Computed example of a mutant assay.
Amino acid sequence: MTSIRTALPHELPALLEYPDDAERNAGTRAYLGQLLDARCTRPEWCLVADDGQGRLVGSVVLGTLPGQEIPYALVLFEAPDDGERIGGALLDAAVAKARELGAQELEHVVDSPAQAPQFQRGPERRGELLRASGFRVVRDGRRFGLRVQGELPPDDARLTFRSLADLGHEPFVALLADLLAETADARLAADVERYGARRAAEQLFADTPELEHEPQWREIGFDADGTPAVISLPAVNPTVAVIGFVGVAPAHRGKGYAASAVVRGTRILAANGAEEFRGDCDGANTAMAKAFARAGYENFADRLEFSRSL
């Protein structure tokens, strides 16, 4: 009989492997190894489905950001193609474990087409399993990527950038509150409806520092008239450099400043050693999608973001 249990030490970091998918096996093994080394997950957060004879037929891993002790996401999830019961049991076990550890919400993302390092084959089926377990789609997103192959575009001469180290916290939260009041991002719009623009801004600014960054990377770009026009929050997550968040004040939209901020964030990350970059936006945020394209990024995948309250 199949049972759900914590992975044994010798089963890490490989967990469930597929006999005819060497690329996936190597990629997810390396990814989980990185997460364990960075303490973005823990051995006791790695759950497996055991067929009763020691053979693994499914797995799920809880994850968090560096320095945090409470999981917020499922970072790996695998279930057999014909194993709806097993997939549901794994998700239920992960939810129970996350709740036991103090989590109030749990997230999971599903990329299409399947991407390294999670290699999520069968995105439609994964979505069905997540919905059946109480998860709901909170964002239909687009993923963008860039690998530096030459000189990056120059900064926008119309903007003067000043950093968090120079300005302090308040101007960033004030600008975020202004732009979130008219956001095209479904997830952020839901936060505004739930908390109000100011609190949603404070929450967004409090969450993003959990990614690796330096205070001087976080900037506001000021228009020639001296008013704050655009915010840029580049960072590095456990596996890749990310644009993080870009937003334009409503009074300055339509000037191409979002693309300018993407370029600026890319230049900062490149100056600090990054060669590959990622960014994402809501599928409905066509202005941000155009900004990534103008900055040289390519839309390499779509991403459904799921969430479940615990």
Rank of each mutant, 00 (worst) to 15 (best):
L180Q: 09
Y195N: 07
L15F: 08
G279S: 09
L76M: 10
V137W: 01
G244T: 04
F306M: 08
P113I: 03
D81S: 15
A14C: 10
V57I: 15
L35Q: 06
L164M: 10
A157T: 14
L152P: 01
R308I: 02
G58M: 05
Q68N: 11
I86Q: 03
G244N: 01
R264G: 00
E305P: 01
P123V: 10
D155H: 09
E105T: 11
D92N: 12
T2A: 11
G273S: 10
D302T: 14
L65R: 15
V263M: 01
A157Y: 06
R267I: 05
F245W: 11
P234G: 04
T239Q: 11
R294F: 03
P215N: 09
Q120R: 05
V95F: 02
I268M: 06
V95T: 08
Q68E: 15
E210Q: 14
R278W: 06
F144W: 08
E84P: 10
S133G: 15
A291E: 03
A73C: 15
P19L: 06
E44P: 04
E78Y: 06
Q34C: 12
T2E: 12
A98K: 01
N272D: 12
E44L: 07
A284G: 14
A287G: 13
G27V: 08
F77W: 09
A7S: 13
F144C: 05
R143T: 06
D166Q: 15
D50W: 10
D156H: 12
R267G: 02
A98F: 00
A26H: 09
T41W: 03
A189R: 15
P66R: 10
L204W: 03
P215Y: 08
C46Q: 03
A293W: 03
P228L: 08
Q104W: 08
A224E: 15
G168H: 12
E182R: 14
F292C: 05
R278S: 06
D155Q: 12
G244A: 05
A79V: 02
L35S: 05
L159G: 04
A186M: 11
D37N: 12
A229V: 02
A284S: 14
V75W: 00
L269T: 00
L12C: 13
P71R: 00
R294H: 08
E219Y: 03
F161D: 02
A89E: 13
E219T: 07
